[in-house]
């Protein structure tokens, strides 16, 4: 069934730009999780997980147990530290490209 259907073909390209462009793979230094990261600035971070990465992260796995808990609302500190290291080592370019 049709849902929110774009009527302009360029909309699909925009969707791709904002959700996929400039993502860099970062491997966690503590577990086997690999995520895709984008940084528009030092402070901005965008982290795209997939099911495999969530499965590999013991921190998120531990939180899943407590259903209804608000724990899952925080990021994994080990992954965030790994991203910081990747930034320091210059693996993640910092700065947006025309808003995406």
């Amino acid at each position: 069934m049709p849902s929110f259907v774009p009527t302009s073909p360029t909309t699909l390209e925009e969707q791709r730009l904002y959700t996929q462009a400039r993502l860099v793979e970062v491997a966690c230094l503590d577990c086997l999780a690999k995520v895709a990261v984008k940084k528009n600035s030092e402070h901005h971070t965008s982290i795209q997980w997939n099911a495999e990465a969530v499965e590999a992260c013991p921190e998120l796995g531990r939180r899943e147990g407590a259903s209804g808990s608000r724990d899952g609302h925080r990021g994994c500190p080990r992954l965030l530290a790994s991203i910081d290291v990747a930034v320091r080592e210059g693996q993640i370019p910092i700065g947006a490209e025309d808003g995406y």
Binding site: H43, T45, S46, Q48, W49, A51
Partner: peptide
């Protein structure tokens, strides 16, 4: 599609 439900985290730079 997996990407509809895959975990995604975002922090905006408000500086």
């Amino acid at each position: 599609k997996p990407e509809m439900t895959d975990r995604f985290e975002f922090e905006v730079d408000t500086t």
